[in-house]
Design a protein around this nucleic acid. Structure first.
Lengths: 348, 348
DNA sequence: TGCAAAATTGCAAGCGCTTTCTTTTTTGTT
DNA sequence: AACAAAAAAGAAAGCGCTTGCAATTTTGCA
């Protein structure tokens, strides 16, 4: 026993009457140990309840068997799914996972990227979604340094210019698809809420939104494009602002929210304004969080298969595959969308 | 640079023309270094981008500056809050946090408790809520061993017999309070959904439930006490089962769900059966998850202040305070509860 | 039975850092 | 200018493990 109360390889060796080398070999299942010795050592290990120190192993083998994952705050359950997926996959390969929330990336005294570097993790997955622009800048700076220390895989919509292994979201594709679904139902006043004007990572949603409108030969109305953070509260405020800024007859008949959290924020305000869903207003979210199907009415959304995504990121990290891939997605239509209430085209 | 691409203390020492001892002293802000030397060393550290290896430090100092936290799967956003709270508090004290989900505790080849032991963490927080009974048994066995290696703090409703530092939930207290609120509104057929019959940790809710009924001199009706897992899907099934098993006039006028996830499951089924909330059925959940206030109608619930709880657990762990404390809670009444629709007492 | 080859086992260095104990340098005092 | 005390800096051991290489034991075969 050392002062921490742990038995070391020395105790085992002594008790078994062999050298630590032999113990180490038994531990690793090397076949150069005679059955008799192996048996004896294994017995002692069990008896002494010996567990090799991952720390010492880390020092020797230059490997910590731990992966890092940097995610936005977990208050969005979405990220919990990514973590779960990553965790399960990692442990299949014998790795633990240390989770570092972005929360305080920009704090002067603290930087998760550097904490990772100090901890000599074997690799790190970084989700760059919904990153505040100032954090994005910081990130790019740190990323270079971090990459010297360990392999990095990025999750999210990352500019082509950043040449990292990435699992990318095809935002523009699915946004266009959503707009298409809505116009097919007769919607012409379609709002899009979420994201930030300067967001270099997220602009592709706007590309898809614009493309969808264009395809249906609909005008782009600035009032329907509201920027806000990706939280339910922010969605609430954004929605209220939009409704207040327009005469009711100009209110949108459909709202696309950047994610499910924002969607329920919008929905709450819609109810407060007496709008029925979907009769008066259709709503679409994104992420297919667990509550989406339990929402009243059930929320249409995009399933981004986050759990699988997390697992995929780990595989990518461990395999050293440096390519860019695209994330899977699936449009899930539920009762929160319906035919446009009062299509402008009808009254004209 | 070693083969991992990291500079070591030796490179710094060499470049600065001092011994590694001196570098170490600078690193730790020891005051036995002359200003001139310190300056030079600091410059080299910056220039070489040197970051001391937490691994090596761990080996030397017998301290990893990492805490562990074992939580049920994060799919319940509640646990994400605990994690956040713990994480923020931990980093204030210079600790990282490794997260281990229970998910596969019972897996033969894998045991988070032992992974923790191998990693020589500086302490661990274990949430024992909603633990499957078989896992609970395993836990008790492992706990003893784990405790030899590192301090442990438990979160949840733990039997007095387990003498660990604990932050405990006063289930019976708040359940009784909830039942009280409902009976005050005239409810007499009050269902309670969730938990398992054999759950040794969770039975106190039943104690409170029974006490509440007794206080109002109401009968305990077995049909209204449904056991199920703590997920939305399970809540759905449980609710459906209960409604199907009774003639509508015996349906409960109020449902207490063991948590918000179960509550939205019940709600979904209630809607499907044409019940209006709260006119026909009142619903109360627990946890005050973010979606509770965005639910339609807003969901009554118990706020268990999980974020603060996580932080408290870390403080407890680091301070070595071995006592048992009770978690804070607050009943949050929202529109999902209302007067009993058709009080039996009226018609009698 | 004797000896080379194969199978076991052990020695010792090294992973990057902290820390105790020395040694060297600087400072202050007479 | 000389010397003790204080300050600064370094040497070396040790944290618990892996691993290349050497030493020892066992085995196979003549």
């Amino acid at each position: 026993m050392n002062e921490t109360g742990n038995n070391t390889i020395y105790e085992v060796a002594k008790e078994a009457g062999v050298s630590i080398t032999t113990v180490s070999r038994v531990l690793h299942g090397k076949d150069t140990v005679s059955p008799k010795t192996r048996q004896k050592v294994e017995a002692v290990i069990k008896q002494l309840n010996y567990r090799p120190s991952a720390i010492a192993r880390g020092l020797t083998g230059q490997k910590t068997n731990t992966l890092g994952i940097i995610l936005p705050k977990l208050t969005n359950p979405n990220y919990a799914l990514i973590f779960n997926g990553a965790y399960e996959e990692a442990r299949k390969h014998g790795y633990a996972v240390s989770l570092f929330p972005w929360s305080s990336l920009s704090a002067e005294d603290y930087n998760p990227a550097l904490m990772l570097a100090e901890r000599r993790l074997d690799g790190v997955i970084i989700n760059v979604e919904y990153l505040a622009p100032e954090d994005a800048v910081l990130l790019e700076r740190e990323l270079k340094e971090l990459q010297q220390y360990m392999p990095v895989v990025l999750i999210g919509c990352v500019p082509q210019a950043l040449e990292y292994p990435t699992i990318n979201y095809k935002y523009s594709e699915w946004m266009q698809k959503i707009v298409g679904e809505l116009t097919a139902l007769g919607h012409e006043r379609i709002a899009f809420i979420g994201g930030t004007e300067e967001d270099r990572y997220d602009f592709r949603r706007d590309v898809g939104y614009a493309a969808g409108l264009k395809e249906a030969r609909l005008p782009f109305v600035g009032n329907y494009r509201i920027y806000c953070k990706a939280t339910a509260e922010a969605g609430e405020n954004a929605m209220r602002e939009m409704l207040e800024s327009l005469q009711p007859r100009y209110w949108p008949t459909a709202v696309i929210a950047i994610n499910d959290m924002v969607a329920i924020g919008c929905q709450k305000v819609a109810f407060r304004y007496g709008l029925r869903i979907p009769q008066d207003l259709s709503i679409v979210g994104c992420d297919n969080l667990f509550f989406a199907s339990f929402n009243n009415p059930p929320l249409s959304t995009v399933d981004t298969k986050q759990q699988e995504l997390g697992a995929r990121a780990v595989r990518k990290l461990l395999s050293g595959d440096g390519s860019r891939e695209n994330a899977e997605w699936e449009l899930i239509l539920r009762e929160s969308i319906g035919k446009a209430a009062d299509p402008v085209s009808d009254t004209e």
